[in-house]
Amino acid sequence: MSSPILRLIAQRIALGILLLLAISVLIFAGTQILPGDVAQAILGQSATPESLANLREQLGLNEPAYLRYFHWLGGVLTGDLGTAMSSGQDIATSIKGRLWNTLFLAFWAAIVAVPLAIILGLIAVRYRNGWVDKLISGLALASTSFPEFFIGYLLVYFFAVKWQIFPAISTVYDGMPFGERMQAIALPATALTLVVLAHMMRMTRAAILNVMQSAYVETAELKGLSAFAVIRKHAFPNAIAPIINVVMLNLAYLIVGVVVVEVIFVYPGMGQYLVDHVTKRDVPVVQAVGLIFAAVYISLNIIADIAAIVANPRLRHPK
């Protein structure tokens, strides 16, 4: 590896960290702007001024905001996300299992959706403007156009209620056997796949079609390569950067955007956890989840950037 590429990558990572810090400030400030504070929220409407003052003292709420921010940030960096107001439980411990569940669901949805989207994109290019292309594009577009809750309920109606193949409620618990776990997430994973598929597939198609105009594609055709080999060997490698970008965007969505699907299938993931605690006005939990989502989003985008840099032979092999 050469130095310019390492410098570019280091730059991206540094920028990502900076961005994450900025977001942590925003999240913290946002929760401060809201009326009332944690003490008020814990003690409720009937609290006496004395007990409020005591609790504020106890929680350190009288300190200036910037100090409290650094306390909070320091805690986050050492793995201490604070305590949930509503339950009094340690947030880090309760998030751990939830985050793992969300990642598990996202992972399996991605394992199906990403290769499927790319392969469908390649096929669409191969038969561009023919009926295969139009069918693929049409179906993909239809599946994204339906709201995800609608897809969710459709799946539940057919697979859980009518045919009873998969459970309607995706309960998972610690120590659950892998096979059962997979069966439990089958429907939400399918719903997620259908939601993200079209975007990735259409981007793949557009990105490859864009390079199909190039002179080197003609060169490949004039070597006698089959249409599909031309696309796979000569067009795809040059279209990879925009494809990776949109794939990462969708992976991020699989993790941070699953709220609706998790709620429909009552799946114990981050989204549900967030929704629960928003309704309870549990500010520390909302802060913690917000920060984790931001971190996921930023890291995936950094990965996309780095992958695009590494995929560029001009940067990988300078003159």
Binding site: A215, Y216, T219, H234, N238, P313
Partner: peptide, 11 residues
């Protein structure tokens, strides 16, 4: 081709 620079696959 006329322009080998464009006719070779950059990847």
């Amino acid at each position: 081709a006329q322009s080998a620079a464009a006719a070779f696959n950059p990847a």
